[in-house]
Structure formats: C-alpha cells, structure tokens
Design a protein around this nucleic acid. Structure first.
Lengths: 333, 333
DNA sequence: AGCAATTGCACAATCGATTGAGCAAAGCTC
DNA sequence: GAGCTTTGCTCAATCGATTGTGCAATTGCT
C-alpha cells in the first residue's frame, strides 16, 4: 500500500519542473513538439522523470487513449514445442509492430478459455487470437458482441477468420511415407495404426482423413480398431497400444508429440521386437529425428501461419475465411 | 473506433436498470451486499449486464482500486521444455491465487528484459518474477525504485530474493553417473567433456563446479580444453564437437537441452563410433531418455521452485536470500 | 405517536493521463 | 505604432469505475 503511494505521477513531476501536468504529459508521451512545448522544458521534464524513476500509469493512459495496442492470445499449452513456438514468435512479431502482447495458457479447458477471453476484453485488447480453442465460436461470439476482433489459429471456427495448417495433405504424405517404408520391410505390409488426438477436433479429423486417403490410394482398408483416438495424453496412448497385446502394430501414425511420448514409452517395452516398428509423427520435435524407428515428422509452419494472422489483423476483415498453410514434411530415412 | 463506442459502461446499465452508476458498480464488482444494495436490484443489474454483453473496463477499475492483482514474469524462452513448464505452472498457480499473470518472453536480450520490466511496472504489476534474467540486479533496481516487489527465478541476483535449482549437487551427481558408466566401458575412462552454456552465468558456473568436483573426487584432472562453453545454441555445440576431429570424446556432460540438440546431431555424424558415446544432460526432455547413449538427465523441480516463489511473494520479504531447490536426477541405465 | 435503527440507495469526489480550446507574450510585417 | 502570426504554454473536461458519506424511507420498539 505504502509503496504505491510513492510512485510519482505527472502532478509530482509538474511541481518539480515548474510546469503544468499537461505539459509534462506531452513531453513524456512524445507529443511535445506537436503541442508546441519548448525543447528546454521538454529536456527538463525528461531529466526530472528519469531522476524520479517515473513510469507512466498505463491504466490511466488507456482510459483516455483511443487505442490500447494490446493483442491477446489464448493458447492450450506452453510446454509443447509447437505451441511454445507460436507463443514466442507471436510475441516477437507483435512487438515488432508496436503492439503489446498478452498471452494466456488455457490448458484446453473450455471454461478457462472463455474466462481468459473475457479478461482480455476487459483489458481492452483490440484483437484476440484464439489458438487451438476447444469452442472457437463461443469465443468469437463473445468478442464480436464486445466489438473486439478475433482470429482463430490452429483450429478453425465458423464465426471468425481462421488460419490452420493443411493437416490433410501433410498427413496423407506422412502416411504414404510410412506405408512405403513398411512395404519394403518384409512382413510389415498392411494398414497402419493411427494413435492420438480427439476425433471431435478439426485437426485430428483432417489428419485421419489424410491417413485414410493414403491407404485408399493403395487399395488398403483400415479396420476401425486401428484408430486409437486417445486424446492428448502420453499415458492413454501407451495404454491403448499395450492393450493390443502381442498382435501389436508394426506401423504407426502418431498424432501429436504428446502421444509420441506414450508411443516411445510403449515401444521400449517391446524388447527385441521394437526394432521392427516404423512410425511417423504429426507434429515435430527436435529430438524426434533421432528416435530409432522414426521415419518422418510433419512440422507446422508457425512463422507463416503467424504472418497470415497479422495480415488478417491489419486488414480488419469481417469475413470468416479459413486460410490453410502447408506443412513441412521432414523425412529421416 | 466505432466499435469501441458500442461498449456499454456502467452509466448505460444504470439507465437501463433505473439505478445509479454507483449501485451498478457495486453489483458488478460483488460488493452489493456490503454496500446494502437489495437482492432484487442486484439481480436486475446482473441480468441487464448479461444481455448487454457488459465487460468491466479494467483500466478504469485499476485507476481507483488499491491492488492490481497483476503479477508479471519475464522468461527467456517459451519453446524450451523447462521454461515452457515454468510459464504454464506459474499461470496456473497465479490464477489459483486470484492473481492476473502477465508473462513476457525476452529471448535472453538484456535490453528487452529491461523494457519488459518497465512495461510491467507501467501496467501496475505488483510483483515481477525475473526468470533467467541476464542482469537480474538491473531489473531489481528498476523495480525497487518503482516500489514493485521483484523475485529472481532460475538465475540469482544480489538485490532481491532468488529461487534457483541446486545446480552444483545435481551436476556432480550426473557427472558421477557418467564417469561411472564410462569407467565400465573398456577404453572409455578419463575426463569427460563439458559442452554448452555461458561461464558468465551462475547456473553454468555451478554446474561446471559440480562437474569438476566429481572428477576431483576420483583424482581425475579435467584439461581446460574439455570445457566447451558454447552458449545456448545447438549449432555452436555441434560445431565445437566437430572441431575435435577424430579424437572426439566418449563421455559428455551436456549443459542444457538446446546444446543436446547439437550434440545429438553431431553424434549421428560419427557413424559406427556413435554407439560408444555416453552422455548425460542437464536439463530434462521427455524424449531424452530414449536417445541412445543417454544415461541420465537432471530435471529441475519447477512446481517446488514456484511454490517458493509464491511464498516469497506472499511474505513480501525485503531480504535478498537465495533459496536453493534440489533437482531430480533421472537415470536411464 | 414519536424516536431509534435499519435498509437502500444516490451523490460527488477521486484516480492519472490525455487532449481540445483558449490566451498571454513575443516576434514580424506594413 | 498597430495589427497579425507564432510560440508556449495552462485550464478544464474527459475517460469508466470505485468508494466515503449522507439522506430519505421503512421498519421496529416503547
């Protein structure tokens, strides 16, 4: 309490400089020339502000200003390579544009997502990037009714523009790569298993479509029980694979790096048989290429996706288009 | 511009409810009972607020309130497992305490760290967690002169309380583990190489001390050229190891997971000789345990460190103590 | 009926920064 | 010297929410 009394305000500086608060404000916000304050007064005020350790109270400033320059992002995870990279690149790009980024991690909790969006609106964020939101349209409705621009990233919604990876094409390519490799391993042909993700979310659905399409083009039917939609949990991925018993898969499409953690754990329990397993993973991890049996990974093009996001932000578009960004297929054979 | 004109204020709601702005404010900030507003008016105001999509203007609110409840954190990276985890856990713990977390990624750029700290102070953050700051004392000075509590995390400073891992002990233990393993590999005895990090930063210095102490206790002298302080760059770690030519190390202490990326890349260039390499890594990665040749990793105890941070925050201590949190040694043999 | 206590508000000032408008002083031109 | 223009400020209102204080109406008690 006491410490907040000690923070100097423009009134304190005005007294020390022998000027008005208005002049002090003009100097400190950089508009002194436009408002015809003399250079000598400007220099005096700036010196005193430095000596007094003055910091503008942004909350007061924002109450009066037209633009907050705050851009908000909700994001499911930080401790995942892809989302961590999104967060980092987003901040860098926002700052380069003179914006103040505020990111909130929502852990794939719909209520927390909604609450975080409300908070960002209360903080006068001008735009909100809903990244990997479980219910993008609920958040879009909230933002629209508050007059705040919203953009979906990673998972699309119907009520706002979206930027997503081309999950279908990349998954198809990765599947073909795995199928091709398994074909050249004696006794390893046939349908792969698909493990990880939620069928209810767009990205898993698109990746599964790509997976199935690649099989179809080779005349391979994928039995329903080859689809293990275990959500985003290493434990559940490992458990589902364990439950397959000795008739375990020799070829896997792993959906998400969190599922890959479970797959790798399970694989190490196979003993000598583990050397016959082939897999590919959608998404990418820097250590992934060095894991034995991994023949490819799909990396989402984060810089390019974010370029699209900032273009949409600048254009203030009202359309609900969905822009698809190609992924990068990294082959390790 | 136009959209911001449409946001309802308490004055709009007051008109619709047939009440005063003061009553509306009391209802919406939850103090209506204390301020003796009737339940019927409270319910009417809440209903109208919901219908109108009202969101409090936090800037206005903070201008009048005593406490902002904002806690800030600066952090070097998001796309690193350890820091990503810190960010995620910090947010969760802050929210559980009714605080509003604001995190900024500063990419180990001293000027950006200072600027981000200034910004957080301007936003009326009550406390700032300087995580892995390159110049913690500069940030502490800034915060103190602004009357803002500051706590160092991961790297200690002299002017504020700090919470750091016990880098020395864990590095010693990991080194002993690697040395022991190398001793039982024919022809692999002798001093390990230490790769990664900056000698100027506390954590690297402590880890190096632990590394050297473990060697000393076995009567092994570590030649100066075994210390490859390549900073936090996979490329530089790989290059430094390549420059050792055919007389490459058989035992490595890898400092940081970013260095490990370089080490793994380099290792794959060794051909058949790679199977003789033994290494351990300080820090931890979920895929690390499955990388051939990796015999152990040190994991920093993020939840425990953050518990300490929140204790310090709550105690408003003025001391500059440095609290050390033990690490977890994960063995893969 | 009169007085005291309680209920249920409204009023007005405040918070710190911004900005439109106005005015005095200085300088320039005829 | 008079009038106009420019310079260099200051004043006062505003932004939206909060909060101390005060007062009218109602209720309860004697």
């Amino acid at each position: 309490m006491e410490t907040s009394r000690k923070k100097p305000t423009i009134y304190d500086l005005a007294g020390l400089a022998g000027a008005s608060p208005s002049a002090v404000s003009s100097v400190l916000n950089g508009t002194w020339q436009k408002r015809r304050i003399s250079r000598s007064l400007a220099e005096r005020v700036m010196r005193i502000a430095g000596e007094e350790g003055y910091a503008v109270n942004v909350q007061a400033s924002l109450l009066r200003r037209e633009k907050s320059n705050i851009v908000g992002m909700i994001i499911p995870k930080y401790d995942n390579r892809y989302f961590g990279r999104i967060a980092e690149e987003f901040e860098t790009m926002a700052r380069a544009r003179g914006l103040f980024p505020v990111i909130t991690c929502t852990r794939r909790d719909p209520e927390l997502e909604f609450e975080a969006a409300r908070e960002l609106i209360s903080y006068q964020a001008e735009c909100l990037i809903a990244t990997g939101a479980t219910d993008p349209d609920r958040i879009a409705s909230l933002c629209k009714s508050a007059g705040v621009q919203v953009i979906n990233l990673d998972l699309p919604g119907a009520l706002a523009p979206s930027v997503v990876s081309d999950n279908f094409t990349a998954a198809q390519q990765l599947t073909e790569l795995i199928l091709h490799k398994c074909d050249s391993d004696p006794g390893s042909g046939g349908a792969l298993h698909f493990v990880g993700g939620r069928l209810s979310d767009h990205n898993t659905a698109m990746r599964l479509r790509g997976f199935l399409t690649a099989h179809e083009s080779r005349g391979i039917a994928v039995p329903e029980h080859h689809i293990l939609a275990t959500g985003y949990s290493a434990d559940r991925a490992a458990s589902a694979l364990e439950r397959l018993g000795p008739a375990h898969p020799l070829g896997l499409f792993v959906n998400s790096t969190i599922s890959l953690e479970g797959v790798i754990r399970w694989r190490s329990s196979l003993g000598a048989a583990q050397s016959r397993l082939r897999f590919g993973c959608f998404d990418w991890d820097p250590f992934g290429s060095f894991l034995p049996g991994n023949i490819g990974m799909v990396e989402q093009d984060v810089p390019r996706m974010l370029d699209r996001v900032f273009e949409l932000m600048a254009s203030r578009t009202l359309s609900s288009e969905c822009q698809t960004v190609p992924c990068i297929l990294r082959k390790f054979v």
